[in-house]
Write a protein that binds this DNA or RNA. Structure first.
Lengths: 118, 118
DNA sequence: GTGAGCAACATAGTTAACCTAGTTGGCTTG
DNA sequence: CAAGCCAACTAGGTTAACTATGTTGCTCAC
C-alpha cells in the first residue's frame, strides 16, 4: 500500500482510515489495529502510521488512550452545535474544579510535600 | 521556551504561532521564521517545530512553499471549524492537567474524596 | 484464593538523521 | 554582458531509536 502518488504516505493512510470510519467499516467504539499492525498492514514505518493517527486524533475522529489503543470516536454523528454546548459545560465544570483546587492550595499553609515536577 | 506544563511542545509552539497569527502579530502574507530559526527561538528540536508547523498547515492557517518558506494565509480562508477543534483540544488538555493536580491533592492530603472520573 | 509484583504491549512525545525538491543568488564561463 | 551552473537555504517526507506513561495479564508468594 501507500503507493507513490504525489500524496504523502501519512496522508494516504489517514485518508484510508478516515474513509473506513466514515463508511462505517470502523464503527464508533471500535479499536483501530495497533500502530505496529497498521504499519505492517500498510507496509509503512511506525512513524508514518503514528503521524496518520495523529492527524485523525487532531481531527477528533479517533481517541487515543495511552496503554489501551486508539478508538473510533462518535465524530460525524455529533453536530457542531451540540459540541459547542458540551464545550461550554465542560469549561464551566473545569472552572469550578479549578477554583476548588486553588482554594485547597491557598488554605493548606505550607504543604511540606516536596513535589518537584521535572 | 516550551515549558513542561504537561502540554506537548509541538502543541505549545503551534498555540503560540496560532495566537500570533490570530492576534495580528503575524499578518497574512508574512513569512514565518524558518524552521531552524523557530527551533532556536523556542529552544526545541527541528522535528518538534516541523510538527507544529504541520498542524498549522493542516488547519490552513499557514501555507508552506517548498524552497521559499511558510507564509501566513489570509484570515478569511480559515474556517471556523478550526477554532472549534482547537478549543476541543485545549479543553481536553485542561481536563487532563486538572485531573492530575486533583489527584496529587487527593493523595497528599486526606484521601477522603471519591473521584468519579470517566 | 487473593493481592503484589512484574513483564509485555499499548499510545504518546521527542530527537536525530537522511533524503527529496524547490528557490535564490552568486559565480563561472562563453 | 548573458546564460547556465552550482552552492546554500528552504520546506517537506521518511525512518529509526529512545523515553515516558498507562493498561493488561500472568506469575508467584502468602
Amino acid at each position: 500500500m501507500v503507493k507513490n502518488t504525489g500524496r504523502p504516505g501519512y496522508l494516504q493512510i489517514a485518508d484510508d482510515l478516515r474513509t473506513q470510519i466514515r463508511g462505517g467499516s470502523l464503527a464508533p467504539g471500535t479499536p483501530l489495529p495497533s500502530t505496529a499492525q497498521l504499519a505492517e498492514q500498510y507496509d509503512a514505518s511506525l512513524s508514518v502510521v503514528k503521524m496518520a493517527v495523529g492527524i485523525l486524533r487532531n481531527e477528533g475522529l479517533v481517541i487515543g488512550q495511552q496503554g489501551k489503543g486508539v478508538f473510533v470516536a462518535d465524530a460525524g454523528e455529533a453536530p457542531a452545535g451540540d459540541e459547542l454546548a458540551d464545550l461550554r459545560a465542560t469549561v464551566q465544570d473545569l472552572s469550578v474544579r479549578l477554583a476548588k483546587v486553588e482554594e485547597q492550595l491557598a488554605t493548606s499553609t505550607t504543604p511540606r510535600s516536596g513535589r518537584s515536577n521535572q
